[in-house]
């Protein structure tokens, strides 16, 4: 590695350390840190929550990085698909109730329905709007997906209003020790996210289609010459990205409140993750997701007005990382 490159890596490390130190500094300054055992346990709980949340972030972050890796498109509507996934799950969860059956559909089970829907949606978006512009000026897909996002937000707002919803699902706590505990829904979400991510990882590694996707990401022209139908790979990739996003939505819906406008946050989070980890890099996305989620939880724990300031973590990460080392933690320099 070049000298300058090594310096950038150190600088990036220093930046991330500083980002993690900030909530502690602000917390100490504003008197939100207590130097006792209880606080320490709370801190551990917060970090644990962050870790679990990171699993979910990673999953939909991988969706975005997959699309970017293969087509060099930043899907600005990614967060909106997450939001849509949450709504779909919520609708299916409540559907039997509305029909007077008196029970709810399990939100994890509904993925069997929501993922194919999201896949089809992604497939359709790619087919109708994006296939023709892949490889063209990079701002066209940006504006198109921006438009898709706006349409989705307002479509959902039209139908469901801006009210916040959430799905009560396994909300009780799981005690690790007497004082350290996390919500069962978070553990289930994390496990689910891990399983799905692993599934996608194996699919890309082992399945014929997965290998074709990776080949296309490496070099579309060579892939084409090797007999891969690149246009079809694009469709599958966007479908897969959308499915991952909507799976993220399902897992979000059982942990957090959501409304049509929260999609923008998910986009920014997913974007921060892939910037942090390295664009087009799966392990990087997971690492970035965990770092970001833990940081967010620390901010919300210690910084006054923390829940509002959480969003700042993602923005700071995006700008800081892009300026210091645009290829992120694990990414390879693009030429």
């Amino acid at each position: 590695m070049e000298q300058a490159e090594i310096r950038r890596v150190y600088l990036l490390g220093a930046f991330i350390v500083a980002a993690f130190a900030t909530p502690f500094a602000v917390g100490a300054w504003s008197g939100n840190i207590f130097y006792d055992r209880q606080w320490l346990m709370d801190l551990i709980t917060v970090c644990l929550n962050g870790l679990l949340q990171g699993g979910v972030y990673a999953m939909y972050g991988v969706g975005l990085t997959l699309i970017f890796g293969v087509m060099r498109i930043i899907n600005v509507a990614h967060g909106e698909i997450v939001m849509l996934g949450a709504y779909l799950t919520w609708v299916l969860f409540n559907a039997p109730e509305y029909l007077g059956l008196g029970w709810h559909l399990d939100p994890l089970l509904t993925m069997v329905i929501t993922l194919p829907i999201a896949f089809a949606l992604g497939f359709a978006i790619q087919k109708v709007l994006l296939n023709a512009v892949v490889g063209g000026p990079e701002l066209t897909p940006l504006l198109i997906t921006f438009g898709v996002g706006i349409a989705m937000i307002n479509l959902v707002e039209w139908i469901f209003t801006t009210d916040y919803h959430t799905i009560p699902y396994q909300p009780d706590a799981f005690h690790i020790t007497e004082t350290i505990f996390v919500g069962k829904n978070k553990i289930i979400s994390f496990a689910m996210a891990l399983a799905i991510s692993l599934g996608v990882f194996l699919f890309l590694k082992l399945h014929r289609l997965g290998k074709a996707i990776r080949a296309t990401a490496q070099n579309p022209e060579v892939a084409m010459v090797c007999g891969i139908d690149v246009q079809r790979i694009y469709l599958v990739t966007f479908g897969l990205g959308a499915a991952l996003a909507s799976a993220g939505g399902a897992l979000v819906s059982i942990q957090f409140g959501f409304n049509p406008e929260t999609g923008v946050q998910y986009t920014v989070v997913a974007f921060a993750i892939i910037v942090l980890g390295g664009r087009g890099h799966y392990l990087g996305a997971m690492l970035g997701a965990v770092l970001l989620a833990v940081l967010e939880n620390l901010v919300s724990f210690m910084v006054p007005n923390g829940s509002a300031m959480v969003e700042m973590a993602a923005y700071t990460m995006i700008v800081g990382v892009l300026l210091i080392r645009p290829q992120g933690l694990l990414g390879v320099k693009e030429t």
Binding site: L129, L143, I144, F146, G147, V148, G149, I150, A151, M152, I153, N154, L155, W158
Partner: peptide, 8 residues
């Protein structure tokens, strides 16, 4: 919604 569609 039309706004989004229009932008596209």
């Amino acid at each position: 919604i039309m706004f989004g569609a229009f932008l596209i």
